[in-house]
């Protein structure tokens, strides 16, 4: 009986596909839906718009499809999309790590907190591919010594999902040390001096925690204390894998470069630049900036 049902389902699927395809082939005068939906666009030239309007007026099928699209309100943004796009824009893409599904107030993208150490040549800033004319260049840049050029973005807070599983007990892989989530609140808020103050005791209590060390290192960098960043980042580097490893290397190179060790920084950036990770283009830009 169930076999009979599934045969019917497959046969129906095949029949709809066959009749649908045959109908489309007979509709030679109909524009592809991806063209049809551009009907109202200001980018469509006058002649094409007239043809599209004339077609929709004469073709019930295309008019029905457009009406169906309109019903779905496809031009209306929603809150999920707003959050998704924000994450896309601000995330540094530590993709091996998943969001901690708790305390949304704590676990948010750490925004676009960015700092310029010293503004240098604008050549280190990437211009948009098609909008360079619209971008304001900073005036007077390049008058300072051309060192320490690149920008530091705060790493988004991501903690290992396994740490939430209390049933695994203390031996269940990497654990989020108590107090870390609370100590990350000022980091999230962009107050890096307070973040360093709150993360330091967590790291002292749990010197082997890669997460605590990582965020203390990044917070120290963002608080303009690169020499304090190196030791915790080195701890994080010992246990980091995948994307997190690239991130640690990137921040370590930044700290080294800012503490007057450009050769050490170059040695870390070169493999990142050659690789395919999410820090690849930044590492190459930084290497160019250091030349």
């Amino acid at each position: 009986m169930s076999e009979h049902d599934s045969m019917t389902e497959n046969a129906l699927d095949a029949l709809l596909r066959q009749e649908g395809t045959r109908w489309r082939e007979a509709r030679g005068g109909c524009p592809h839906p991806d063209v049809l939906v551009a009907r109202g666009s200001e980018l469509v030239d006058e002649d094409t718009r007239r043809r599209l309007d004339a077609h929709v007026a004469a073709c019930a099928a295309c008019a029905r499809l457009l009406a169906g699209f309109a019903d779905l309100r496809l031009a209306e943004p929603d809150a999920a999309m707003e959050q998704r796009v924000l994450s896309r824009v601000t995330s540094t893409g530590l993709s091996g790590w998943r969001w901690l599904p708790m305390a949304a107030a704590v676990v948010l993208v750490a925004g676009a907190a960015t700092l310029w150490w010293r503004v240098g040549s604008p050549a280190t800033q990437r211009a948009p591919a098609t909008t360079s004319a619209a971008v304001k260049r900073p005036s007077g840049g390049g008058t300072l010594a051309p060192v320490a050029l690149w920008r530091i973005d705060a790493a988004p807070v991501r903690l290992p999902i396994a740490s939430l599983d209390a049933s695994r007990g203390p031996q269940g892989g990497s654990q989020v040390p108590p107090g870390l989530i609370e100590a990350l609140a000022p980091y999230q808020a962009g107050d890096y001096d307070a973040a360093v103050a709150q993360l330091t005791p967590v790291v002292q209590g749990h010197p082997d925690s890669p997460d605590a060390s990582f965020y203390l290192g990044v917070a120290s960098l963002l608080a303009n204390r690169p020499s304090d960043a190196i030791a915790p980042l080195a701890v994080a580097a010992r246990q980091a894998v995948g994307e997190r490893r690239d991130a640690v290397e990137w921040y370590l190179a930044t700290a080294e470069q800012r503490t007057g060790h450009p050769d050490a920084a170059r040695a870390r950036l070169a493999p990142l630049c050659r690789g395919t990770g999410s820090f690849q283009s930044r590492a190459c830009d930084a290497l160019r900036a250091m030349r």
Binding site: W23, A26, G29, A54, H55, A57, A61
Partner: peptide
């Protein structure tokens, strides 16, 4: 610019 009517659905 010819808007050929589509055959019946």
């Amino acid at each position: 610019p010819v808007a050929a009517p589509a055959p019946a659905s």
